[in-house]
């Protein structure tokens, strides 16, 4: 599903050039659960953004679903992303002015799905995430765990094949964190590919495979015993 070849990303300011990614070769198969780890500033999030078609690589190739998308313009990236990729962030990134329902509804609106269908899908996913009773609340009225579940609901409502999670438990206490990880695992079991950036070894242990990044390069890759999956 995801295949990068010699992927590099360079950030330039007036004086400094920073190589955030340096010849990264990563291959993620459909149905996999991959965790990306590494110290701050090693390029984890940059990699995730490129995988998520939010950003373009400076060099190298990126194949997504068998298509070379590395040089896509913004419009094409948006089209490709829609319905295919869901995002979960550390800071939830819910829109404060919208209710839980409206937040979750967003991707469906942009996919131009009819209102009645949207209603059904949103309610269904909110039930699944166990926050069906909170549809009319605003994000600030919810606990952190609940907010992250709304964010996950939003990520999966359009039934994407890929979910990208950027430190999804970073802002949560351990109990809520575990719940979120259980949710992601459950999704993965149902067939969704998951790529997750994390600092936490415990979270990483939920993944099939752990990729360690250092200074923009993949330094180690460890595969979990398939028997444990």
């Amino acid at each position: 599903m995801i295949k990068t070849e010699n992927l590099s990303k360079i950030f330039r300011t007036e004086e400094v050039e920073t190589k955030a990614l340096n010849n990264v070769n990563l291959h993620v198969k459909e149905g996999e659960f991959v965790a990306i780890m590494g110290p701050s500033g090693c390029g984890k999030s940059t990699l995730l953004n490129i995988i998520g078609l939010l950003d373009n690589p400076s060099e190298g190739a990126y194949m997504f679903n068998g298509k070379e998308v590395g040089k896509y313009k913004e419009g094409s990236r948006t089209q490709e992303r829609k319905g295919n990729i869901g995002f979960v962030f550390q800071s939830f990134n819910l829109i404060d002015e919208l209710t839980v329902f409206e937040n979750v509804e967003l991707p469906l609106i942009y996919l131009k799905i009819k209102a009645s269908e949207r209603k059904r899908l949103v309610n269904e996913v909110l039930e699944r995430m166990n926050i069906g009773h909170r549809t009319k609340h605003f994000p600030q009225q919810l606990s952190g765990g609940q907010q992250q579940r709304v964010a996950i609901a939003r990520a999966v409502v359009a039934n994407p094949k890929l979910i990208l999670a950027d430190e999804p438990t970073g802002n949560l206490d351990s109990k809520n964190g575990m719940e979120v990880m259980d949710l992601l695992t459950e999704l993965n079991r149902q067939g969704t590919t998951i790529v997750m950036v994390t600092h936490s070894d415990r979270d990483a242990n939920y993944a099939h495979r752990i990729v360690n990044l250092f200074d923009g390069k993949i330094v180690t890759e460890s595969r979990k015993d398939p028997a444990l999956v």
Binding site: I95, L106, Y110
Partner: peptide, 16 residues
């Protein structure tokens, strides 16, 4: 800014 980002991540085009 943040809202725009979120909406874009969720598939909104520039026109939208």
């Amino acid at each position: 800014t943040k809202e725009i980002g979120i909406r874009k991540v969720n598939g909104a085009t520039i026109n939208e």
